[in-house]
Design a protein around this nucleic acid. Structure first.
Lengths: 163, 163, 163, 163
DNA sequence: TTTT
DNA sequence: TTTT
């Protein structure tokens, strides 16, 4: 369909250490549980109330999975941008179940660490550059124009995509 | 929790006419089914493929529900901005189920019609102004500053929230 | 116009302490300078490069201005959500100038603190509740449904907007 | 910097036909003028008011530029997702000027047509697939997982990026 | 002018 | 300069 957008943006904390699994052919899949909370003052009672929402985040990208594995842990605060997907599965009793997840897979997906506590670099993912395209957020991997001379062969989107 | 964001942005088409229900005390709740699609060319086969995702959108807002009721129908294209919420319920067999929905409820929620086919006004919601704050999108209900004289008592956020 | 969206989302750090001014009739206006940065590895040289972008953020909302005044300072990390506005003005030499700013004014605007360093509460804005609707991010001020009994008169958007 | 986000989302109409220029080395750059509008009812006068904001959108991507050239024209409605950049230049009188633009360049950029009027396909960009990764919106170019067998070598982000 |  |  033309003209479709499916985007989720979350900022929250990991409720547990990430789980990294591998497909049969060796590609990693990272699973995160992220909590977002909202608080408000109840209008009738005047009490402060809070509500926490838990999100399942699934990452199908090798570079991002490395970042997750190396830098994220229970309590880490992250920004994630992905898309909604609902998956159907059958449990051991033959009951159909649905799970809706925030999937980071394609080129519009982003994961950014928002606390520097977990790594020395706080998003600076080291010399192997594993996470260079993703770990430092949505702008990563982008080549700023104008910094480069107009006649240069770089500064183009084609050039700097790290995956 | 401080520093939490939970935001979903969808552009898609209604797969069916909206369902409007009412709570016991008479407040409306609108349910939408929205499809988003993505297409891509398979790298190995070279075939064009397509995948459609269906989203449950629930609207807890009287003004927005009126807009939905009056202008949206099967096939309408909309922009919605809301938040993810997962609801637990028990089916008739006593099995626990979960449903993840995009909820439009608070002041950060938006619904915008993206086709003019369904109404003469295409988002211009008539003299009763039922939808004035929502139907024309996120900026609606906002008072542009600078258009108003600096000494005016309006132009403030307090003044023009229509709900 | 129907079907219009104008939204900016930034996560960055304040390059200076906020400036708070007041209109003639006493309403506050906060100005922030926010830096966002992107880094990438140059494809030809292999060097790591970085580029910083500076944004002007203007806040026309009393509650948000209080939060800014109390908790933000040079170096603070924030999430802001607002809209793009370009303003024309004439300098002292009679030259026309344009300034494009990220404006937080209407009900779709959000400001969230992303570091707890600046306040004990890290977004928990105390008993006077000055920032209750904004400081804890986009979901704030929202009334979670379903937590409230279905027959309650609250849980509606109308009820809990704090401004 | 770690933890930085710079994102603009617009839905609006083109105020003029796109302008496509080329760099010295032949890469295309598309310039769009996009209008977004907001309307509200003035609280004191009760009048309906409207305000239009004009945005400069610059596209540094060959595939996206082809889509723009082929399908967009004055009046077209589009969804764009890019980042804010302010550019400094000196006019013919030696006066320094600044221009803030919404730049679509990197892998997080998106352009989606929201009206089908301009093309038969309404985002279906033909056999040469020029726009396949962009024209159908943010999810485009993504390989849905789970549709592919788990042992497959595709379904990975690496596989289907069209640029 | 921030941050890493 | 768009759109409704």
């Amino acid at each position: 369909m033309a003209g479709s957008v499916n985007k989720v943006i979350l900022i929250g904390n990991l409720g547990a250490d990430p789980e990294i699994k591998r497909t049969q052919d060796g590609r990693p899949i990272a699973n995160l549980r992220i909590a977002t909370s909202e608080s408000w003052r109840d209008r009738t009672s005047g009490e402060r109330k809070e509500r926490t929402e838990w999100h399942r985040v699934v990452i199908f990208n090798e570079g991002l999975c490395k970042v997750v594995e190396q830098y994220l842990k229970k309590g880490s605060k992250v920004y994630v941008e992905g898309q909604l997907q609902t998956r159907k599965w059958t449990d051991q009793n033959g009951v159909e179940k649905y799970s809706t997840e925030v999937v980071l897979q394609n080129f519009n997906s982003t994961l950014t660490m928002l606390d520097g506590r977990n790594s020395g670099g706080g998003g600076n993912f080291g010399p192997d550059d594993a996470g260079s395209g993703f770990g430092s957020g949505s702008p990563s991997g982008a080549a700023p124009r104008r910094a480069a001379p107009a006649s240069s062969h770089r500064g183009d989107m084609d050039d700097d995509i790290p995956f």
